[in-house]
């Protein structure tokens, strides 16, 4: 427990000491929100007649959480190959406490970053009711846990950050695009609707949208959405823990293949 707490705390301290990470986590989603929102605003008719910027807002919060989770899990790769985690891996600490620390730290950071954006909502022209805030934060915490766990499970077995970028572009970003963050499932072709229905993140976005604006009733049912989001969060965290416990040293390959001359 002590190990997990110390490792989680380290994640937070590190984050706060790297201003570039703070900018990196907020700027791209906010930029996307402003540009896409402004561009689509005129032609887009959101379910329920909301403005596109307003409709797109929950998806933007989830994107901030996704970016935060990506940033905090990608560091695992460098850390384990040639950094801090090497020493942790060969210490008598249980791999599970390592997993717990990384997951808790990453989740906390992702939640805090999403939460900051939520707190900024009034400045951006939305004022979610005070009653909406608690459920929204709970949903956000689950989404943060899910995305951190997923990122960690993937990053742990990768040898290079380049590999993670590939996974990010092929899996994580498309997952967000198909989560109902960016466009609603209604009106999409059937195959796309099916992909969105199969995407667990869809239910996190739907839960968050509903928490922020109970009038936005479109999409999957409230209970089902929350249950799937909870299952996604627990499943991803368990997957990360299982991967770390099973492969405590990560991918089992030589770090520096030797180039020996033949006699």
């Amino acid at each position: 427990m002590r190990a997990a707490y110390a490792l989680a705390r380290r994640e937070v301290v590190r984050f706060l000491r790297q201003p570039s990470r703070i900018v990196g986590a907020f700027a791209p989603p906010l930029l996307a929100w402003l540009l896409l929102g402004a561009g689509f605003g005129a032609s887009f008719r959101a379910p329920g007649g909301a403005s596109y910027l307003g409709w797109f807002f929950p998806g933007t919060v989830v994107l901030v959480v996704l970016f935060a989770a990506i940033f905090s899990t990608i560091s695992v790769i460098e850390d384990r190959r040639e950094g801090f985690l090497q020493a942790v891996v060969v210490s008598p600490a249980s791999p599970l406490s390592v997993a717990a620390g990384k997951i808790a730290g990453g989740t906390l950071l992702a939640l805090a970053q999403g939460g900051v954006l939520l707190a900024l909502a009034p400045l951006l022209g939305f004022a979610p009711s005070a009653a909406a805030l608690a459920p929204a934060l709970i949903v956000l915490a689950l989404v943060a846990l899910a995305l951190t766990g997923l990122g960690l499970a993937i990053a742990w077995m990768l040898e290079s950050t380049q590999g993670f970028h590939a996974v990010m572009n092929l899996v994580l970003i498309p997952m967000w695009f198909l989560s109902g963050s960016f466009f609603p499932a209604e009106g999409a072709p059937a195959w796309l609707r099916a992909a969105m229905a199969a995407n667990p993140l869809t239910y996190g976005v739907a839960s968050l949208r509903r928490a922020l604006d109970p009038a936005a009733a479109a999409g999957p049912s409230a209970t089902f959405s929350v249950v799937v989001t909870l299952a996604f969060a627990l499943g991803a965290a368990l997957a990360a823990a299982a991967v770390i416990a099973r492969f405590p040293a990560g991918p089992d390959r030589p770090a520096r293949p030797s180039r020996r001359k033949q006699p």
Binding site: A6, R10, F84, A87, P92
Partner: peptide, 28 residues
């Protein structure tokens, strides 16, 4: 174990590095 590539967290102070590692070892 002392690795060839440093296993210190460069963003933490010297003492913080020791305290985090101590906690990982179960000390406190």
């Amino acid at each position: 174990v002392v690795f060839q590539s440093p296993s210190l967290d460069r963003k933490l102070t010297v003492l913080e590095n020791l305290l985090v590692h101590g906690a990982v070892l179960g000390l406190g």
